[in-house]
């Protein structure tokens, strides 16, 4: 199934030109692994880079460099797929191993989140979100923007049903809630600016209390 909702073209441009930060780069690479149309656009935008590399005069390679590289590469086996979470190898290779992901339940919602990448304290981060079938991710507000995509299952967001590979975004200052597909639930990969998602209601009180305790 092809994704119906795609990242804005300026995001593909940022990816193709190296301007995307690491969380955005990984999020886009994941979308590309589902989306031939966006892959072709990235291919068009990065063609000059391949031509550049082809045209650069070769430099003599020092003896022993391959052995050095092989010694290093063979210590980094290609990452093992994570069951139920279809992240491409190019993304898994940049993440800590799945055993090290620290999951945080969202109180009373049937959802949990794990931060996979953090750019800098207070900077943007990349999160994995799992929602059980029919789970509601409660209403929350974003100080910074949010972008994300569905990895498996499906989710309702602001009247739209998003399926595997579909891209979604919520601008800074907005708030929304999510509801997972009744049968399959949902896995989603999310980039948050500011890492600042504020839950509302009693969950927000718990969130603030937990934040105070952790300082």
């Amino acid at each position: 199934m092809m994704p119906v909702n795609h990242p804005p073209s300026e995001r593909l441009l940022a990816y193709a030109t190296g301007a995307a930060d690491v969380p955005l780069r990984l999020l886009l690479e994941t979308h590309l692994s589902f989306c031939p149309a966006c892959s072709r656009e990235v291919g068009r935008l990065t063609a000059p880079g391949g031509t550049l590399l082809e045209a650069v005069p070769e430099e003599p390679v020092p003896a022993g460099l391959f052995e050095r590289i092989w010694a290093e590469a063979s210590r980094h086996e290609p990452p093992r797929p994570v069951e139920g979470v279809p992240l491409p190898a190019s993304v898994l290779a940049e993440l800590p191993p799945a055993e090290a992901w620290r999951w945080h339940p969202v109180p009373g919602s049937g959802s949990r989140t794990a931060r996979l990448v953090r750019e800098a304290p207070g900077g943007c981060g990349l999160f994995l979100v799992q929602m059980k079938p029919g789970a509601r991710f409660p209403r929350h507000a974003h100080r910074g923007g949010e972008e994300g995509m569905v990895l498996a299952g499906g989710v309702w967001d602001r009247g739209r049903f998003l399926e595997v590979g579909d891209w979604d975004s919520a601008p800074a200052g907005s708030s929304h809630e999510l509801r997972a597909d009744e049968k399959e639930g949902c896995w989603a990969l999310i980039r948050e600016e500011c890492e600042d998602v504020k839950l509302t209601g009693w969950r927000g009180v718990l969130q603030r209390a937990a934040s105070l305790l952790s300082h």
Partner: peptide, 18 residues
């Protein structure tokens, strides 16, 4: 590590390596 992620749609292998 990432060779399995290479897709021809995303450009030539050299563009990917670049």
């Amino acid at each position: 590590q990432k060779a399995s992620s290479y897709q021809a749609e995303q450009g030539t292998p050299l563009a990917w390596m670049y």
